[in-house]
Simulated assay, not measured.
Amino acid sequence: MNTMDQTDRTFMKMHGLGNDFVVLDGRARKLAMTPALATALADRHRGVGFDQLAVIVPGAEVDAELIFYNADGSISAACGNATRCIARHLMDETGKTRLRLKAGARVLEARDAGQGLTSVNMGPPETHWQGVPLARAMETLELPIEGGPTATGMGNPHCTFFVADAEAVDLESRGPEIENHPLFPERTNVQFVSVTGENILRMRVWERGTGVTLASGSSSCATAVAAHRRGLTGPEVTIHLDGGEIRIRVTDEGVWMTGPTAHVFTGTLTDAFLESLT
């Protein structure tokens, strides 16, 4: 049923480095979110438009729990830039400088990094084939796919290709091909990455269930982990994406990502829009 009560219709539009989100606050109200409604909201011509949709709900022993939807209505267990955006919103709301947020099976720590930046620890990476997950047992450092990409789990699956020139890759063609590769039973996010300097990477992203995006937090974390595992960088990197710059630090306690966020506007869905979905 694609209907929402009058009190359910307010949403926030946010982005992190151009990776944009619709955010609904369900802490004080029950939201009737469905894959069909998420897909309708994702439409950039007839809806609001987003790369991912996030619903904030109450959580036990955490400041909040986050539920993510991709633009095709599928669920995603992780969305790093949306987590940073929501963390900043909750910090501004509560005055706290540290938060604990639950996303999927992970509890993530968020911090105010100063100068308007927000940091989130996305948790430890999964580098075993079952944790990514992959369809069968294999080494994840170099998959048996042309180009020898690295597989990483960051609460969601990632496939990272290291190439001479990320700009030259036909992302619209290669992205969906790899997203739906049979080695990835849950599909995968796809990154094409070039090393452009000491601990500096250029990355372009195809997100599972969404397509080309200007940035991706979890993809940035997976790329930093893959580059460090392959000896291409140290544990701290700066990644240049189509939407801007993000800093990633791989530690024993998890992968920290730090970057800017933006709350663009707050809006209200109309009766006519909701009724058009029934």
Rank of each mutant, 00 (worst) to 15 (best):
N2M: 11
T3E: 14
D5G: 14
Q6D: 14
R9H: 03
R9A: 06
T10M: 12
L17W: 01
N19R: 07
F21D: 04
V22R: 02
A32F: 11
M33D: 00
M33T: 01
P35I: 03
P35M: 06
L37Q: 04
L37W: 02
A38N: 07
A40N: 09
D51K: 10
A54F: 02
A54W: 01
P58V: 08
I67C: 14
F68P: 08
D72R: 08
S74W: 10
C79A: 13
N81R: 04
A82R: 03
I86S: 11
A87S: 13
L90D: 06
M91C: 10
D92H: 13
T94Y: 02
G95F: 02
T97Q: 11
T97P: 00
R100S: 15
A103Q: 12
G104V: 02
A105E: 10
R106N: 06
R106H: 05
V107G: 01
V107N: 02
L108F: 01
L108K: 00
L108Q: 00
E109S: 14
Q115M: 14
L117N: 02
V120R: 10
N121G: 09
P125V: 05
W129R: 00
G131Q: 00
P133M: 01
L134G: 06
L134R: 01
E139L: 12
T140R: 01
P144T: 14
P144K: 14
P144D: 13
G147E: 05
G147K: 02
P149Q: 11
G155L: 00
N156Y: 05
N156H: 12
H158K: 13
C159T: 12
D165S: 13
E167F: 05
V169P: 00
G175L: 07
P176Q: 07
H181K: 12
H181E: 09
L183T: 10
L183N: 05
F184H: 06
E186W: 00
E186H: 08
T188E: 03
N189S: 06
V193R: 10
S194E: 10
T196K: 07
E198A: 13
E198G: 05
R202V: 03
R204I: 13
V205D: 08
E207A: 07
E207Y: 04
E207D: 08
G211D: 05
G211A: 07
T213D: 02
T213A: 11
T213H: 10
S216E: 08
S216H: 11
S219G: 15
C221D: 07
T223G: 07
R229M: 15
R230Q: 14
R230Y: 12
P235W: 11
V237L: 10
T238S: 10
T238Y: 01
H240I: 06
D242G: 03
G244R: 06
R249M: 09
T251K: 11
W256L: 08
W256G: 00
M257R: 06
T258D: 04
T258N: 11
T258Y: 04
T261I: 01
T261C: 12
H263F: 12
H263N: 12
V264C: 15
F265M: 15
T266C: 13
T268V: 15
L269S: 08
L269G: 07
D271H: 14
L274G: 08
S276M: 10
T278H: 14
